[in-house]
Computed example of a mutant assay.
Amino acid sequence: MSVRRRILGVAAGAFGVAAAGTAVGVARQRRVIARRGAGETFEFGSLRSKPRTVVADDGVPLHVEVDEHDDSGTAPRRGEPAQAPLTVVFCHGYALNLDCWHFQRAAYRGLVRTVFYDQRSHGRSGRSTLGHATIDQLAHDLKRIIDEVVPEGPIVLVGHSMGGMTIIAFAEHYPELFGDRIVGAGLISTTAGGLDPHRILFPMIPVPLGGELTHRVVATLARGHRAVDGLRRIGKAVATVVTDGFAFGDDVPASYVDFVDGMLSATPFEVVAEFFPSFRSLDKFHAVDVLGEIPTTIICGTADRLTSVGHSRKLQSLIDGASLLECEGAGHMVILERHDQVNAALDQLIAAAAATVELP
């Protein structure tokens, strides 16, 4: 990518989607603005599209949903070849599912081609095979989804928490795609390593544990995971309070807390335990420099108690040209708690990414 394209792409992002030229356009930007807050009119978990199944390289079926771009009125001129639209792929976090992108999905539906999927062992996807519940495997799953669902055209990757780690692992394994197929990245409430594992576990098991003790306790509880799931259901009132405190920084509507707690509770503890070692050993800061080749936006709440804002600041320092949005007072579920701010930052990211592929 030339310096000129890089500079102009970032400049486009600074002015929002309207500055991205014909990729989105002024008229469409007005529609984007009008759609902000659209998620409030839809019930959580109600946004659906026809399900697709992508089979991972180890045979695990992955549940995928695609919201197609409404390209009415944007047909190519006579004699011009049709171009594949820009696609935004959303990767969700640990113990959640694709529904966590509720406000982003509502805002972009019909305006941008978007792909949502459930990570292996989460939501409607199949259970992981033994030993494949790892961040590296999630990166390979993402590659398979791109190959089958987005076989052509530019892509913006957006990941929250474990989804952001998935993108970083993807960059480690497939760096050649960045600046070519991958033209933008959004890393939200995430890190490339240095995690405090017991902080991640606490919303699922509200008991304060130390690092090594946590690892042993998780391994022990995994052997009796059905009993743990039963206790989590019995202790729902306590779990809801813990979810509120760890997922959010400010007071949010009770429906937000119930929504997140429902996703956490629906994730079997056996799945929680299978993925847990990956967080403990995560160290991929060496792989993030390739993200400097494309517009990259980093977002985090300053009150995030799981992946603190220090992780986001470190990522920004290692990724050339990356922008950082710190949402004051917001917690780990910033995509819900500050959805208007997050969506506005994603508007700018999409604009910058679109500009880089449109320039000659």
Rank of each mutant, 00 (worst) to 15 (best):
V3F: 08
R4I: 15
G13P: 08
A14I: 11
F15K: 10
V17G: 11
V17H: 05
A19D: 07
T22G: 10
R31E: 09
G37W: 03
F42R: 11
R48H: 14
R52I: 01
V54A: 00
A56Q: 08
D57Q: 10
D58P: 08
V60M: 10
V64S: 05
H69C: 11
H69L: 15
D70N: 15
G73M: 07
P76W: 04
R77W: 12
R77A: 14
G79K: 01
G79Q: 01
A82C: 04
Q83I: 12
A84P: 07
P85Y: 08
F90S: 03
H92V: 01
G93H: 08
A95L: 08
L98W: 10
D99Q: 15
D99H: 15
Q104F: 03
R105L: 02
A107L: 04
G110A: 14
L111F: 10
T114L: 03
Q119Y: 02
R120W: 12
R120E: 09
S125N: 13
G126L: 09
S128W: 07
H132R: 14
D141E: 05
L142T: 14
I145K: 01
E148L: 11
E148C: 07
E148P: 08
V149I: 15
V150P: 11
P151I: 04
P154F: 06
I155P: 14
V156E: 01
L157N: 03
G159L: 05
G159Q: 06
H160C: 02
G163D: 04
M165T: 05
I167K: 06
F170C: 09
Y174M: 06
E176S: 15
D180H: 08
R181H: 11
G184P: 06
L187H: 05
G193C: 07
G194T: 12
M204E: 04
L209D: 03
L213Y: 05
V217N: 09
V218K: 00
V218I: 07
A222K: 15
R223Q: 14
G224F: 09
H225R: 01
A227K: 07
D229T: 01
D229A: 00
G230Y: 05
L231G: 08
R232S: 02
R232V: 02
R233W: 03
V238M: 14
T243K: 02
G245E: 13
A247I: 00
D250A: 09
D250V: 03
S255A: 14
D258Q: 13
L264H: 11
S265F: 02
P268K: 12
P268R: 13
F269H: 08
V271P: 01
V271Q: 04
F275H: 05
S278C: 05
S278D: 03
L282Q: 07
K284G: 04
V290N: 00
G292I: 06
C300W: 01
T302A: 06
T307P: 06
T307M: 12
S308Y: 00
V309P: 04
G310A: 08
R313T: 05
D320F: 12
G329N: 02
H332T: 08
V334C: 07
I335Y: 07
I335H: 13
H339A: 09
A345I: 07
L346V: 13
D347F: 15
Q348E: 15
Q348L: 04
Q348G: 10
L349M: 08
L349P: 01
L349W: 12
I350F: 09
A354M: 12
V357L: 02
V357K: 02
P360S: 14
